[in-house]
């Protein structure tokens, strides 16, 4: 199995987001960048597939210079090699999806794994868009995967509201990974050392010849509205519970 894993670098989830004064982006100074948490499940699943069935894992990341760090970490987890699509500009989702699809096409593959969504833009679009672009079937929000190599088919379980469903499909295909799929491993020291020698191929976004125009325009970013001053009750429990229920019933009128 040749598995491609799409990896996005995002701000650590502990980051306090500060908006630039022009409202067109966030202040990046001091941000710690990490692999998108859902992409770690995708990498781990690829590693488990290789352990079982053999093959190769290629991680693909599009972004500015700093994404090298995310790539190194994915290689240290055990991926075989990487392709970095270098772009310093902020690209539209469709441009990213089409660039990633082009790289995938050039590489060849049996499976493409992405995260369920990137925890920065929270779009949850790239996986299905790459699938559409490549005319491949997809399953999103996958929490369990079985591969039938003989018949070249997949059986995936995906999460819905209050239910799960089983999806059956042939591969090549695109899957998006959800928490629960597996428990990602930490890189070991020897693997971190080995990762330094693994191949990282670099291509520029421009060289891919993507002529897709931007489809979404950011007008502005704003902070969420401030929460009101809290009412904190500290007396004895019987007292405070009575007061709380009164407040919820009479002031907030929510119970």
């Amino acid at each position: 199995m040749k598995v491609l894993v799409m990896v996005k670098q995002v701000p650590d989830t502990a980051t306090n987001i500060q908006i630039r004064s022009d409202g067109q982006g966030i202040i990046e100074d001091g941000i710690k960048w990490v692999i998108n948490p859902y992409d770690e499940f995708a990498i781990e699943e690829a590693l488990r597939i290789r352990e079982k069935l053999g093959g190769e894992i290629v991680v693909i990341a599009l972004g500015p210079k700093r994404v090298d760090e995310a790539i190194r970490q994915a290689l240290a987890m055990g991926a075989d090699r990487a392709v970095v699509v270098e772009s310093s500009e902020t690209l539209d989702l469709a441009q990213v999806a089409h660039a990633l699809a082009r790289v995938a096409q050039n590489e060849g593959f049996d499976l493409i794994l992405t995260g369920k969504q990137a925890v920065d833009d929270d779009s949850a679009q790239i996986g299905p868009m790459v699938a559409a672009r490549l005319s491949l079937p997809q399953v999103s929000i996958v929490i369990h995967l079985d591969i039938d190599v003989e018949h070249k088919r997949l059986r995936a379980e995906r999460e819905l509201e209050g239910a799960t469903e089983i999806v059956e499909l042939p591969y090549p295909a695109v899957l998006t990974a959800q928490r629960g799929l597996n428990e990602p491993r930490y890189p070991t020291l020897p693997n971190i050392m080995k990762a330094k020698k693994k191949e990282v191929k670099r291509v520029s976004f421009e060289s891919l010849g993507i002529d897709t125009l931007p489809r979404i325009r950011l007008i502005q970013l704003t902070p969420p509205s401030e929460r009101p001053e809290p009412t904190i009750l500290t007396a004895d429990p019987v007292e405070t519970v009575k007061t709380l229920v009164e407040l919820l019933h009479e002031q907030a009128k929510v119970i």
């Binding site: 980051t15 931007p214 325009r217 502005q220 969420p224």
Partner: peptide, 20 residues
């Protein structure tokens, strides 16, 4: 139509327009 959608899980709101 312009839309408001949360990003960074609601740590910021993005107002966006669709160009197509």
């Amino acid at each position: 139509v312009t839309a408001v959608r949360p990003i960074y899980a609601g740590k910021a709101l993005a107002e966006v327009a669709i160009e197509t």
